[in-house]
Design a protein around this nucleic acid. Sequence first.
DNA 1: AACACTTCTTAATCTAGGTTAAGTGCTCTT
DNA 2: AAGAGCACTTAACCTAGATTAAGAAGTGTT
Lengths: 192, 192
Amino acid sequence: MQSILENIAKHVALTQQEQELFLSKTETKPFKAKTILLSSGEIATCTYFVNSGILRSFNINDNIIEHVLHFACEGWWIGDMYSYISGKPGNLFLEVLEDAEVVIITKENQQQLYQEIPKLERFFRILAENSLVSHQERLMDNLSLTAEERFEKFCSKYPTLIQKVPQKHIASYIGVTPEFFSKMKARLLKKN
Amino acid sequence: MQSILENIAKHVALTQQEQELFLSKTETKPFKAKTILLSSGEIATCTYFVNSGILRSFNINDNIIEHVLHFACEGWWIGDMYSYISGKPGNLFLEVLEDAEVVIITKENQQQLYQEIPKLERFFRILAENSLVSHQERLMDNLSLTAEERFEKFCSKYPTLIQKVPQKHIASYIGVTPEFFSKMKARLLKKN
DNA sequence: AACACTTCTTAATCTAGGTTAAGTGCTCTT
DNA sequence: AAGAGCACTTAACCTAGATTAAGAAGTGTT
């Protein structure tokens, strides 16, 4: 299991004291599968780091159709960035897909941490930049690749998720209906 | 015209000295329309802020089809974030669409600025977070809205661009072919 | 053990948007 | 002023993926 301190150490070096201060501003909690940590319409007051288990963020549009924005498993950050930074009600749900242990940082605590450990500005800057890059890539993929190519990319990028996550969620992530996903998968199995 | 210092002042307060230091690490240049500031395969060594004019970033896939990632006009930042932060060759082109004046910051200078003015870590963190949010929204829009809805959203979000940018680029941005875009536009005109 | 509930599959039918191709007007060269 | 080259349009035809509907198989609850 990768700890949150190791995750931070990838980009900035905290002293022993800073590490303790950081941890003192976080809370670690277990959650059962199917728990909803955040609902559409609520204001996101926390950021989440996954110690173990799997979470997903998604929205629901007019047609009552879910769209998966993100999966997060061990060592990933997740939340509703829009609501978190704007302070306005968001439109994302945050759900536990597989029993999880999650590190929670409230916005207040994060603001205090920025004051007390300025290095964390750098850490979260780098985190946001990396996330931005992967969103840009996914956006371009959605514009230029077929569903089949997006699925293959997903497989090579997140091999562990394929076994663990219901395939309707993967269909949603790559942007097709579960029915079409099923058909496509059958086609791929025949081909190879 | 919004200056780069005003842009920074939106999120962090720099002293007079810091402002001067910052400007000393930038270079402001005019570019003619059609200039390519960055090509696919090159390593992005700079970040760009647009004083005036319009730029676009796009990639070209196997089929020789362009996909617009971004437009940037007065007061916007643009670049190839992937290549810039990874130091690897990127796959974006950066092109001037309308004669422009651009502020250029090299990666080296940006790194030095982070050392000398730690507040800038915060500024660029906030910039990255905001950009992340708008990419997430665009991603969800591409998954859940029709081409027509995406076009309407584009119009209300970037009203000035519609007059100034060739419509084939707007078609590409919202993710349809120029032919379909033309058809859709005619349909909308009839309707309203 | 039986029930409800959810996930996944299959298949027929439909449609948003793509492709191909031809034509119209621009603007920019020379 | 004649041509070359873009940007845009129109229209016929095509397809990736959606929709609808039904059934199969698994999973958890009582």
